[in-house]
Design a protein around this nucleic acid. Sequence first.
DNA 1: GTGGTCTAGACCACC
DNA 2: GTGGTCTAGACCACG
Lengths: 128, 128, 128, 128
Amino acid sequence: MISFDQFQMQDGSPIYQQIIEFVERGIIAGTIVSGDEMPSRRVLSALLGVNPNTIQKAYKFLEDDGIIESRSGAKSYVTANSKMQKQLRTKLLTQDVAVMVQNMKQMGISREEAVSLIKTAWKDEVKK
Amino acid sequence: MISFDQFQMQDGSPIYQQIIEFVERGIIAGTIVSGDEMPSRRVLSALLGVNPNTIQKAYKFLEDDGIIESRSGAKSYVTANSKMQKQLRTKLLTQDVAVMVQNMKQMGISREEAVSLIKTAWKDEVKK
Amino acid sequence: MISFDQFQMQDGSPIYQQIIEFVERGIIAGTIVSGDEMPSRRVLSALLGVNPNTIQKAYKFLEDDGIIESRSGAKSYVTANSKMQKQLRTKLLTQDVAVMVQNMKQMGISREEAVSLIKTAWKDEVKK
Amino acid sequence: MISFDQFQMQDGSPIYQQIIEFVERGIIAGTIVSGDEMPSRRVLSALLGVNPNTIQKAYKFLEDDGIIESRSGAKSYVTANSKMQKQLRTKLLTQDVAVMVQNMKQMGISREEAVSLIKTAWKDEVKK
DNA sequence: GTGGTCTAGACCACC
DNA sequence: GTGGTCTAGACCACG
């Protein structure tokens, strides 16, 4: 049974997307693996204090992307294999990085300065 | 007259915000400077194929932030000074970088790999 | 003892219905005949990796339709006679064909093309 | 504006799927083409006497499959080009036919009989 | 108990 | 006006 203890809702993006990303990043990090059991919609709904429909929406998306598998009446399980893990990793990473690089170029930032900013931000994150 | 040739709409964030950011990043890069004339709302609306209300909203935000100023009829001019430029620069940069670093940490990416990814993406951007 | 080796679960329709149809189509084909012994509910449950309740539901339907009969303890036997076989044949066939023809008409497919598609699909099925 | 006059709800399959299929088959038949305007969620909701959420679900699916395009605040439009039309056509057809052929083989029906059944059903459909 | 669908109605951001 | 998200609560089929 995968744990949602580390999950914390934030404002700004839809709840169902936050749940999707939580699972996706968990898979990338290796803390969620194929065969793991998902909490039932009702249980997770109660756990997060969120409407069951919102959970259903997130699960549906994950199912459509082949990350989990659901059958009516039965529990839901993670099905993401290592190939998917790599795909997810690449997808999210390149997406994040590309956006940032594009923005920086538009601002006339040099490559060296960009790298320097990353390193600084990295340290600040650690301190938190 | 500042040019919107380089502007390209994307999905995911509101159009009016994309316009605001486009101007802000131009100011940071120095391609847009104080005194430059903004296109009229009608012209920009037609140019981008976007509802006039959307343009109006973007201009309103830019005005409220002291980045542009409406003078003599419908014409608007850029008023951002060097102090603003620095403020904008800091605001946008730290914001961009912080989001990316946080995501990467969540995925278990090392600092070295992060830097490497930036460098790769940088080259790819150049090729375009 | 009738064999479920050829049975393979699919998504989209309930498992218990797939079991029912498997038996019915076997009877039509003549591979399942009156007097054949059905596997016990427990055995079939284990064999297909399916919840015992699901098997029970399928057997109940088959019993209600007079296709199988539970005698002497837990054992069940096929009771379908030749009259039933013909009824089943007509029921399933007309049902299958009618649905397909209706869909095709809705898509503007001609009768000739329909026949051609059947012939092609037939060959592909053989190759498997 | 595409018309839902011909649409009539049926029991057995979810409403939102019926809407999806209605649009898909319309595209295949050529009665719905790229650039057509979709009715707004609210309008269609009222027209069909169905909850707006149900409509939203159908539209979301169509959007995910690239058949329509939606932007917040703006109307929704059909974007399916001729390539998609062919893909849809092939997808739905092969799917329908494959299922039927597989069933018939399981019942021990010969190819000739299958073709004959199709032809008969075709005539019956016409008479209706 | 579990997944899936649906209704009724609300709120927000966007155009 | 339009699309998108969310809540509250219900019903059904499935296992």
